[in-house]
């Protein structure tokens, strides 16, 4: 079942990726564009496909996979289906880091990579404080509380940065960036995102047995020889790498990390370990599809990707709450 699901999602992701390369403001021969781009021929097709559509497609895929995977991992670790990757405070920390760089114009030497790198730094600092706050006890309640407190703190600092924005344009740029988008980014951004994604995914995958063992609670997991405290930290670190880099590159893309694992869970027989890969694929699919939709809307005023996922995600979440309520009646 889980394997069929994975192959199905993978196939869909490939199809939607192909579609994504075809959709844009100009009509062109994508196949020859890709071929030219790979042979380093600077044709118009090669430029549009290689410099604009391919990075955008890859970014959407990786950002979506990062959100889906981190959501599944954190829900499994904290044994709570309502956990969103934003909950551990790391995404807010990344946003704050990026916004601070915007504001003070720091790291100017890094060019376009200043924001994503500052975002990763912000995520790292937040995670460090989270570890300090939650201590060696990896209790879900403590982690959630510490994460919430940090979200509030970084959120208020972010509001302050916005409050004191040097000029309306800086503020507008900041707000737009925070709304979340994968447009106007190049292959450079992938250089930050992809290594963080690979490292984070490997960290989480190395603990998939722990996620399964934690299903029956801490004491049983520990009695089964699993290293709960160490493994929990590795999962948090992995999730922080995924979320931090995704937010640092693309801003806030809400609801994907919460909803995708939630929807796929019954299809993997509720196994937290088997949920990881399908959630990554599902997240990639959702974000890429949403980005295609954004591109199809009238181009005068771009609807930001993060706004769209939240606009679609929130009603869906309301429906989930409704369905959950029916179960209890």
């Amino acid at each position: 079942m889980a394997n069929k699901l994975t192959s199905g999602l993978l196939l869909l992701a490939i199809l939607i990726s192909a579609l994504s390369l075809h959709i844009g403001s100009v009509n062109l021969d994508v196949a020859s564009g890709v071929w030219d781009w790979m042979r380093l021929i600077q044709s118009r097709e090669a430029l549009i496909v290689g410099e604009i559509r391919l990075p955008r497609t890859l970014l959407a895929l990786v950002v979506g996979a990062a959100m889906g995977l981190s959501g599944a991992a954190l829900q499994g670790l904290l044994r709570n289906p309502l956990v969103d990757p934003g909950l551990i405070g790391v995404s807010q920390g990344a946003a704050l880091g990026a916004a601070t760089v915007f504001y003070f114009n720091l790291f100017a030497g890094l060019g376009v990579l200043a924001t994503p790198i500052a975002g990763l730094l912000g995520a790292a600092i937040t995670l460090f404080i989270l570890f300090g706050l939650s201590g060696s006890i990896a209790r879900p309640g403590i982690i959630i509380m510490a994460g919430l407190a940090l979200s509030m703190l970084t959120g208020s600092l972010l509001a302050m940065v916005l409050n004191f924005a040097p000029n309306p344009y800086a503020m507008q740029e900041l707000v737009f960036w925070l709304l979340g988008s994968v447009s106007n980014r190049g292959l450079d951004h992938l250089l930050v995102l992809v290594p963080a994604f690979i490292a984070g995914s490997l960290l989480i995958w190395s603990q998939h047995r722990l996620l399964l063992g934690l299903s029956l609670g801490d004491p049983i997991a520990q009695s089964m020889g699993l290293r709960v405290a160490r493994g929990s930290r590795l999962i948090l670190l992995g999730a922080a790498l995924l979320v931090g880099s995704a937010v640092a590159v693309a801003g806030n893309i809400g609801f994907v990390g919460l909803l995708v694992p939630h929807v796929l869970r019954p299809l993997v027989n509720y196994r937290p370990d088997r949920l990881l890969i399908p959630s990554a694929l599902g997240g990639a699919l959702v974000v890429l599809s949403a980005d295609i939709l954004v591109r199809l809307l009238p181009p005068e005023r771009e609807l930001k990707l993060g706004v769209l996922t939240a606009l679609v995600g929130a009603p869906f979440f309301i429906w989930l709450v409704w369905k959950e309520r029916q179960r209890w009646l």
């Binding site: 047995r209 399964l212 063992g213 299903s215 029956l216 609670g217 009695s223 509720y270 196994r271």
Partner: peptide, 28 residues
Amino acid sequence: ARSIALQPQFVDSAWSLSVHDVVSLGRL
């Protein structure tokens, strides 16, 4: 863990796992 196994006083499954999957956990 292979030699000594514990059945704590309070157990609950966080997820709606199948009975077969829960029992398989004993092989972890």
